[in-house]
Structure formats: C-alpha cells, structure tokens
Amino acid sequence: MEFNKEKTDPWSPTNYKLHANFVPKLVQHDLLTLLSPKSHERILDLGCGDGVLTCQIQEMCKECVGIDKSQSMIEEARTNGCKDVRVIDCEKLIEWINQEGFIDYFDAVFSNAALHWMKNQEAVIEGIAKILKPGGRFVAELGSSGNVQIVEKSLIKALDIRGYNGKELSPWYFPSPEDYKQLLNKYKISVSFISNFPRPTELPTSLGGWVETFGFSFLAPLNDHEKEIVKSEIEGMCRDDAYNSETGKWTDDRVDLKGSTKLKL
C-alpha cells in the first residue's frame, strides 16, 4: 500500500546514482555487520532510498520492509530488485504503524544516511520505539553536528544574498551524540553504542553535482538559470577547502554519527 505520497518529489535516482553512489558503499560492511541480520528476523529499513542495502538485508532475514518518502526512489528500489518497499513518510510513522498493525512487530530497525533529512525527530523516534519488539534493536548512521558544514554555510550565504532565508531552507538535522542519546532515552531506547567521527569523502563528480542531488531545497526558489549560477558560486566559495587541484577531485566534509541501541524491556 502506498501511503502519504508527495505531490512533488525532489529526489532523482539518476542524479543519486551519478553523484552519490558512495553513500551505501561507505557503510556496506561495517553497518550491516553491526545490524547482523538473522534468518528468523523481521527488519525495517527506514529511509531505504534506492534499496541497494535493502536488497542485501532482504537476502539475510525472514522479512525486510523498506520505506522511503520518495516515490521515485522507491520505484528505483523495485527496479534494483527489492521485494517489499513502500512509499511512507517516516515522520508519520505512527500513523502507518497503527494502520498496518505493526506495533511490536520488527526485531530491528535499520537506517543509513536518512534520519538527518527528518526534522521531526520526536515523531520518528517515537514510531521506532512503537514498531520494535521488546528488546529489539535500532542500528543507524546519519549526519552529525558539523556534517557538510562548508557547503551548507555556502548555500545559506548564496541564498541570503538573494533575499531568501538560507537557514530556513536547510533540510537537515545534524545532532551531536549527546543530544541524540537524550532523545532516544526519552522513548526508552537504551543506547549500547553511539559516536560521531569525521569521514571526508571524495565525490565521484563535481560539487555542483552534489548540490543538485542533495541541496535541492536551497535551489527550489530559483529559476533554472539562477540554479546554475548558484551551483557555480558554491564551487567558487568552497574551492579552497574542498577541491584538490592535483587530483581534480572534490571532497565533502562529512561527519557521521553511528549507533546501536535496544528497546528497553
């Protein structure tokens, strides 16, 4: 069942594959090892995107449901071979749980590079606590405080000088480990392990391509011509900090938060 479809979908599977193919590769081994799916388990992949990791999890457990707000990314996940993926707004998780009868249903919730796109974290975490079985685990990686701050500051500046409120256009939530642990504990999710760490990541294409793929909320108020100008401006502003003239490669200043938790009995 498709639930909470968006009228407009800013995500492009084509751009994602071209400019951001590093996202699942960065965690393909260590985060899946941390999840350690068992053959008898039911697992929810929250914010599954194009399903690259979802497909792997589905081969390792009894049932894995992938959910994502983006219709186009879910369609791409199906094209990639995922068996059960659905269009669900993760910030309305409780509504979906109640409708489907998924209370205390999953042994684990997994999420990679998705939670920092969800501003209403209270609703997300409350839903995770409700959907997990007693003693179930939550394994996730997301952007942490300081993540992509060079390009975010540049985007905010570029929009501010055009009369927009650049900060309000930012779609991201980048918590510190301490803040996220406090939020998890509020919903009786006991933290086994949580930390953040720098992960500078070389981009497969240009910084402008990254902005087009991930910075669409900043570009949304602009016409096509203005968007191209802003992408060029961002590359100019970030060049000293993010461009290697010897290799011709751009690097984004990622800071990731990774953690594993259990729902208290």
Score class of each variant (00 low, 15 high):
160 D>K: 00
96 W>Q: 07
94 I>N: 15
143 G>L: 05
151 V>D: 01
170 S>L: 06
133 K>Q: 02
152 E>C: 14
151 V>R: 00
125 I>H: 04
152 E>N: 14
144 S>G: 15
176 S>Y: 01
120 N>A: 13
176 S>A: 03
115 L>H: 08
132 L>K: 01
146 G>I: 10
102 F>A: 11
176 S>M: 05
130 K>H: 12
158 A>H: 04
156 I>H: 01
110 F>G: 05
146 G>V: 11
161 I>F: 02
149 Q>C: 12
167 K>V: 14
139 V>P: 08
99 Q>I: 00
100 E>H: 04
173 Y>C: 13
124 V>L: 09
176 S>N: 05
165 N>F: 12
117 W>R: 03
131 I>P: 02
111 S>P: 06
112 N>K: 09
175 P>G: 03
130 K>L: 15
100 E>P: 02
99 Q>M: 14
94 I>A: 13
171 P>D: 03
92 K>Q: 15
156 I>E: 00
162 R>W: 10
164 Y>Q: 11
98 N>T: 08
94 I>E: 15
174 F>D: 09
155 L>Y: 02
167 K>P: 11
169 L>T: 01
117 W>Y: 00
135 G>Q: 02
171 P>Q: 08
152 E>T: 15
121 Q>F: 08
135 G>R: 07
121 Q>H: 12
164 Y>A: 09
142 L>A: 13
